[in-house]
Nucleic acid binder design. Structure first.
Lengths: 281, 281
DNA sequence: TTGCAACAAATAATCATACAATTATAAGGA
DNA sequence: TCCTTATAATTGTATGATTATTTGTTGCAA
């Protein structure tokens, strides 16, 4: 690892540092990583550039850098993060690719308006969800699912192959067996929905489904869905109805079954959110 | 597929670099083409790194580098493009951010499966469209629109403000007056749909609508819409029905009117595509 | 004053090179 | 055969210098 005695991140700019103090007052300080590569046992070892990108990205999404404002110059950021220019520029490139910022010579890098950034990006959604959980966003996400996933199920009823069906039933089995672990159940659930997106035969729906499920995965981390046995069985049966309809080629039934599942899950999630709002942390 | 197959880039070492890559005599970057620019700030010339990213991105979308395969090593790419390692790595970062590739130390950078890459990204859509329009993609796009836009219209029927309505009517007026110029009509048409996305009050739908319209803008280049007066009037009336339903708060009618418009446009586009396929240049 | 052209400065973009970290693969030993 | 260790290949990071481009400013002339 880096033997370099580097002062990383903002332990030098302590003097003016209004930005630094602002970020340290955030409830979750976004893990200003002081030692990038100590994580031998972490499952995903993010590169240095990715960590910087995530940090700045979350700050932008949090509104710490308002739209239209200019980010600090490269030199300033270098001092702040204590990384090389290579890393910083690659982080900027990542953010640029996601539509958060734009850099021009002599003028600096400016934060784009929120209308421009693409929420259908797994990272951006994850960063957004990591900030906390506003009910409006959950509602919006549910509305999108309500529009897309029934359509995907209907398309799957037309185009699903035997392999697709088998994959869905496999996910169904995992869901049924995951009586103990909530995360196992969630994983199988998401894989199920992704499988339907794949079975739709529509590359755009696949892409969209993947992103949506990624966002859900992140949101599940915040509100781990409760698992009473009755709710569990009901959920599994509901999902099974989807597969049955798809296998039978019954488009209308597949779409309706999917709608039922989504409203069901949304209600559950909304209750969890409300409960969480009542007793924070 | 669409006539322009063949090697558009020097993917062999035999070709000299002068025709497709930047010379190391930094006098001039790769290509100064002012190609249709979908980025947020239209008239910025693409940076060197962006051009490399576009080149590789289009090749990946074209299937020149199949999913699961490894891209040539950095050294190979450096020789091929004749740029510095900095710009190549920034180009890779861009592609990574969009979900096209993933790089790991010692193993190389591999092309991800198409399920991973984010089609709801303006650049990726643009790259995809630049290859020509295959019928399957047009169908997929229509299916997505058919799922999203009616839902957006229904939501708009609930949430649209007077300002939203006024904006839609303004677009309607522009469409009605654009009897001569096809591009004027297309622009007004797209603004109309974007306005509906905005009026839905759903930030995700706004984002999605913006991306979809970007793709449509490209597709309109293939089927210049509405030349005949009768079709023109019909289209304007159809759009007007959407606004009327939204203003009346009639969700079902709004959704249905939107569905009518989409199927209408799709039929037109499909005919154009078929015609184009019959006489390929 | 106004307009225009040349110049200066600031900043991101690019280049070049060196070193570090990671890991597939080969080599060697139990 | 299996495990451990060394090697080499490849991406990741660091650093300083150079180039391009935009913006502000100054100077000159109409």
């Amino acid at each position: 690892m880096h033997g370099r005695s580097g002062h990383r991140y903002c332990d030098r700019a302590e003097t003016n540092a209004s930005d630094c103090s602002a970020q340290s007052t955030r409830s979750k300080p976004i893990a200003i990583v002081s030692r990038p590569n100590f994580s031998r046992f972490a499952e995903t070892t993010l590169s240095n550039a990715d960590q910087v990108a995530r940090t700045i990205g979350e700050q932008i999404l949090a509104g710490i850098y308002p739209a239209g404002e200019k980010l600090p110059s490269e030199a300033e950021m270098l001092a702040r993060f204590g990384v090389s220019r290579t890393v910083l520029r690659e982080a900027f490139k990542t953010l640029t690719a996601k539509g958060l910022i734009v850099s021009r010579t002599r003028v600096g890098t400016t934060v784009l308006d929120s209308a421009h950034w693409n929420f259908f990006d797994a990272d951006i959604l994850a960063w957004k969800v990591a900030q906390g959980f506003d009910a409006a966003f959950v509602r919006d996400l549910a509305a999108i699912r309500m529009a897309i996933e029934p359509a995907a199920a209907e398309a799957a009823a037309k185009h699903a192959t035997e392999t697709d069906i088998a994959l869905m039933r496999s996910c169904l089995g995992r869901m049924a067996q995951a009586t103990g672990s909530a995360s196992d159940f969630a994983g199988a659930d998401l894989d199920f929905h992704k499988a339907i997106g794949h079975a739709s035969g529509n590359v755009l729906m696949r892409s969209l489904a993947a992103v949506i499920e990624t966002a859900l995965l992140a949101s599940f981390r915040l509100s781990s869905p409760v698992q009473e046995a009755q709710v569990h069985d009901e959920s599994v049966r509901g999902h099974a109805r989807i597969v049955d309809a798809i296998e039978a080629g019954d488009r209308a039934a597949a779409g309706q079954a999917m709608r039922d599942i989504i409203t069901h899950g949304f209600d559950r999630l909304e209750r969890a959110t409300a409960k969480r709002a009542r007793k924070p942390r």
